[in-house]
Amino acid sequence: MTALSHEQIAAAVRSVCPEVGDQRASNGRPFLHVPAAAVADVARCLRDDPALRFDALMDLTAVDLLQFPYTPPRDDIAVVYLLFSYAHRHKITLEVFAPRQACAVPSVAAVWPAAIYFEREVFDLFGVTFTGHPQLRRILMPDDWQGHPLRKDYLYPADYHGVPHLRDGQSFSTSPPRAEGTS
């Protein structure tokens, strides 16, 4: 068991995919930026390389970069992978950009089965299509829900199946961006 530093892990990953970028978040935490096309290869390398052995996908989530203090400003959906190795006790964060339109990223469900539910959740709330996912459908919202609510340009619907979102006589001075015909 030898825990590797962030730089060592980054070097090992670059041997598979040289385009991987080493970056730092505003809080100083380092992460690797991976091109969307290379995610599956990088994931397999991270899991199977005996020196890396990332056996746990701790979390898979996403951030909408619209109106986000990102330099340079962009409007992609950033899919974030938090990995941990129980064998070596080291961890790494990956970031993958999915363009706002044609929002697709290869699935890592074949590498870490835990990703099946995570990716369904990200698909449900952010609308990222994970290609190669065995059963990509909504997990939290109803199956017939329109849109992906955690996107920042999401317009709140006026009602769901005719049941309005606000009660009679209820109004707010500030309210979330709503779709047409909503108070």
Binding site: M141, P149, Y156, V163, R167, Q170, F172, P176
Partner: peptide, 20 residues
């Protein structure tokens, strides 16, 4: 009763079960 703390900023919570 009315959606409670979720009644304002939530897209998913029903504002009161008396609608159903």
């Amino acid at each position: 009763n009315s959606g409670g703390p979720f009644s304002k900023w939530s897209y998913s919570v029903l504002n009161g079960i008396d609608k159903y």
